[in-house]
Amino acid sequence: EDYYQILGVPRNASQKEIKKAYYQLAKKYHPDTNKDDPKAKEKFSQLAEAYEVLSDEVKRKQYDA
């Protein structure tokens, strides 16, 4: 799945936009606030993985290549 789609940001998003999108979605899908939703944990880990790659310039360049 596309990391940009997961975070809901365009491919040319700035680091600030990526961070903002991640924090909004992380708050929304955090397992502690969605105890009754088994998919929230999965969504949250996808968000974390996408953010880890896109927030790191080197990893992001490799991902975009």
Rank of each mutant, 00 (worst) to 15 (best):
R60G: 01
L25I: 05
A13V: 05
D32W: 03
Y22H: 04
S14R: 06
E57A: 10
S14Y: 04
E17F: 06
A26N: 07
A40I: 15
I18F: 02
D36N: 08
K20N: 10
P31R: 04
Q62K: 10
P38Y: 08
R11K: 08
P38I: 09
A48T: 13
A26P: 01
H30E: 08
P31K: 09
N34S: 09
H30T: 06
S45K: 14
Q5H: 12
K39Y: 12
A48Y: 12
Y23F: 14
D32P: 05
Q5V: 11
S14Q: 07
L54R: 00
V58F: 12
K59Q: 09
A65F: 07
E52N: 11
R11M: 09
E1F: 12
E17W: 10
A26R: 15
D32R: 03
K28S: 08
A26L: 11
A13K: 00
A13Q: 01
A48I: 13
E17I: 09
Y3H: 05
K19P: 01
A40Y: 07
Q15F: 14
P38R: 06
Y4R: 01
L47C: 07
A65V: 10
V9Q: 02
E49I: 14
R11N: 08
A50V: 10
Y3G: 01
I18Y: 01
R60T: 01
Q46N: 09
Q62M: 09
S14D: 09
K61S: 11
Q15R: 09
A40R: 05
H30F: 09
T33H: 13
E52D: 13
Y4T: 00
H30P: 05
K27F: 11
A26V: 13
N12A: 11
K61M: 08
K27C: 11
D64I: 02
Q62S: 12
G8I: 03
V9T: 03
K27A: 13
K16T: 11
S45L: 13
P31D: 14
L25R: 05
K27M: 14
D32F: 04
P38M: 10
E52Q: 08
A13D: 00
N34Q: 09
K43P: 03
Q15S: 11
L7D: 00
T33L: 12
K35M: 09
T33V: 13
D2L: 05
D36F: 06
A26Q: 12
S45M: 15
S14A: 12
K27Y: 11
K16M: 12
Q62P: 02
K39E: 15
Q46Y: 08
K61A: 14
P38N: 10
R60Y: 01
A21K: 06
D2H: 06
Y51L: 04
Y63W: 03
A13M: 02
K20Y: 13
K61F: 09
L54A: 01
Q62N: 11
K28F: 10
A40D: 06
H30D: 15
L47R: 01
R11C: 06
K59L: 12
A40K: 06
T33M: 14
Y63G: 02
D36G: 11
Y51P: 00
A48G: 13
E52C: 09
S45N: 09
Y4Q: 00
S14T: 11
D56W: 01
I18R: 00
Y3I: 03
K20D: 15
I18V: 05
Y51R: 02
L7E: 00
Y4V: 00
F44L: 07
Y22K: 01
D36C: 07
E49F: 06
S45H: 12
P10S: 10
A48V: 14
P31E: 12
A50Y: 02
K39H: 15
K39V: 14
T33W: 10
V58H: 12
A50G: 02
E49C: 07
Y51M: 05
K19H: 14
L7G: 00
L25K: 07
L54V: 03
E42F: 09
E1N: 15
D56Y: 02
N12R: 11
K16W: 10
K35S: 13
S45Y: 15
L47H: 02
Y29A: 04
Y23N: 14
A13W: 01
K41D: 10
Y22A: 03
K16D: 10
K28H: 12
L7W: 00
D37S: 04
Y63S: 02
N34T: 08
K41C: 09
L47P: 00
K43Q: 06
K39T: 15
L7S: 00
D2S: 13
Y22C: 02
I18N: 00
L54I: 05
E1D: 13
D37Q: 03
D56S: 04
E57T: 14
D56V: 02
P31Y: 10
K43F: 10
E17K: 07
K16V: 14
K39I: 14
Q46L: 12
D2Q: 05
Y23C: 08
A48E: 09
Y3T: 01
D2P: 03
D56K: 02
K39Q: 08
K39D: 10
K28G: 06
A65Y: 06
Y4M: 00
T33R: 08
A50K: 01
K35I: 10
I18S: 00
D32N: 13
E49A: 14
F44C: 05
L25F: 05
Y23A: 14
D37Y: 03
D56F: 01
D36Q: 06
V53G: 02
E42A: 07
Y51D: 01
V58A: 15
G8P: 00
K28T: 07
L7P: 00
Q5I: 10
R11E: 04
Q5Y: 11
A26G: 06
K39P: 05
Y29E: 02
T33S: 11
Q62C: 09
L47F: 06
N34I: 07
P10E: 12
D32Y: 03
A50F: 01
P10R: 10
E17M: 09
D36Y: 15
D56R: 01
E52L: 10
Y4G: 00
R11H: 11
D2T: 08
Y63V: 02
K59I: 04
L25H: 05
Y22G: 02
E49L: 14
R11Q: 09
R60K: 10
A13I: 03
I6A: 06
E42T: 04
P31A: 11
K28E: 10
K39R: 11
Y22S: 01
E57P: 15
A50S: 04
K43D: 04
A26M: 13
Q5N: 11
I18A: 00
N34G: 07
E1G: 14
L54T: 01
S45D: 15
V58W: 12
Y4F: 02
E17V: 13
T33K: 11
D2W: 04
Q5S: 14
K27L: 14
D2M: 04
H30S: 11
A48W: 12
E57M: 07
E17G: 05
G8K: 09
K59V: 04
R60C: 02
S14C: 06
D36M: 06
V53E: 03
K28N: 08
Y51W: 09
L25D: 02
S45V: 12
K43I: 10
D56M: 02
Q5E: 10
Y63K: 01
D64E: 04
